[in-house]
């Protein structure tokens, strides 16, 4: 008796589930390896760019790191962890109010709790580059110093571009097209 359409549809569903259960463990290992390499690239990139950005209190770099998420769950944490860390918070003034910025505390907050990663769909792997000190935006815009020094201007933009280029190379090295 030939298969009817509903039996064919059922068989396709079963085969898709089996394929996913076989492919997922292999894809998982590969995806994590690729993102791990990318995370290491980010750390070495930051370490190499000291001529464009100089730490003052080290709170900004203390608040920086990479996190790899699988289906929205943190599976690997790679803080930047400069050799020298902040000895205390940095005080900033924003809209005439004073705030103490403790980089490590802010990074801890970003990772703890049930926030996870917003991209929580099944089968997604995400590398998030996190820098939680709020004045990172001013550094990137070149407004942190307020004068001609503009230390760190475009630093985060440059990091993003470098990361986008590097993921293509890493995927190619693993045999995947862009």
């Amino acid at each position: 008796m030939p298969l009817n359409e509903s039996m064919r549809a059922h068989n396709r569903e079963v085969m898709a589930k089996i394929a996913r259960s076989q492919v997922y463990p292999l894809a998982r290992k590969e995806a994590l390896a690729i993102l791990d390499e990318l995370g290491m690239f980010v750390k070495s990139w930051i370490a190499s760019k000291t001529y464009t950005y100089k730490d003052q209190t080290y709170n900004l770099t203390d608040s920086t790191g990479c996190a790899i998420y699988e289906n929205g769950k943190l599976v690997k944490f790679m803080p930047y962890m400069n050799r020298k860390q902040a000895s205390g918070p940095r005080t900033i003034t924003y809209h005439r109010a004073r705030f103490a910025v403790d980089g490590r505390s802010l990074l801890r907050e970003a990772l703890s709790g049930n926030a996870g990663c917003p991209l929580g769909r099944y089968g997604t792997f995400t590398l998030a580059v996190i820098s939680t000190a709020p004045y990172g935006v001013w550094v990137n815009e070149g407004s942190g110093d307020g004068g001609p020094n503009k230390r760190g201007r475009g630093w985060f933009d440059e990091l993003r571009k470098a990361t986008e280029q590097e993921i293509i190379k890493i995927k190619a090295a693993h045999g995947y097209s862009a």
């Binding site: 599976v75 690997k76 944490f77 803080p79 490590r104 505390s105 990074l107 801890r108």
Partner: peptide, 20 residues
């Protein structure tokens, strides 16, 4: 299968091991 992190802690003066 996976240790999330092993190294200096985000708490100053501590080392850290993180697992799921």
């Amino acid at each position: 299968k996976n240790l999330v992190y092993s190294g200096r802690s985000l708490y100053a003066g501590y080392s850290s091991k993180t697992m799921n």
